[in-house]
Design a protein around this nucleic acid. Sequence first.
RNA 1: ACAAGAUCACU
Length: 280
Amino acid sequence: TYAYNTAISAFMNFGMYDEALSIYKQMTAERVKSNSVTFGTLINGACKLRSYVEAQHFFDEMLEMQIDVNVEVCTSLIDAYAKQGLLNEAETMFNKMKMLGCSPNVVTYTTMFHAYGMQEMWGKAYSLFQDMEDCGIEADTVAYSTLMSVLNKCGQSQIVIDLARKMRTKMVNLSEPVFYEILTACSKMRDWDLADTVIKEMESILPNLSYGLINNILRFVGKSANVEAMMKLFYKLEHSSIEPTSETYKILADNLATIGKWKENSEVFSWIDDKKKQEY
RNA sequence: ACAAGAUCACU
């Protein structure tokens, strides 16, 4: 069994689904017992390759053979349903998993928030979040960022700000995506004072920031007539070890131009020139 | 021996 599982997993890691499947067929032909690791590998692999029908098929087979299912497999399947837009199936799975002897954990709940978000159902997501807390499951930073992203998307930025306060009292780490969502909320609520405070707080994770997200933050902080906050943030970034991209400079220059700060604008262009010279 | 979730970028 170990040997077969290893082989199946190796093929799955290379995205070679057909080969993995034929190993599995050989396994059953030779009457080697498959276990939950075998099916876990097959189902997770199929989900990653977006072969959702196959994943479902393995799951049914797993139930028929009365092999124990685990939380990871259930969560994987819920995510697979959600990504196909099959919210009802996802909900059914979520309810059914308790009957199968595994209870949803924080990852499962997060997957459900995301599922509701895809259908713009922020109310469902938010009330599920409250259910989760009632069950004594603590939200982590991914759970918060997921829920916040749903709420921002549905125009509920005030709740995002409330959640941010809650994260602080519960001492949950504020990760980069969480900062992004909080700042998005500030910008939608036009709460520049709060945005300023949040940007100061971001200093603690500054060395770990990626410019993909930073560029977006600079873009909307600057766009909302808060160019000063944008520049302040940029200066702080300069002192950290991360390299701005050319997109970063473009955003700065554009935002400065919109409010007529031509002097600063041309300064940004001179930075770009300096940078080019350094490269030679 | 296998494992599940968010934001951004790339495609």
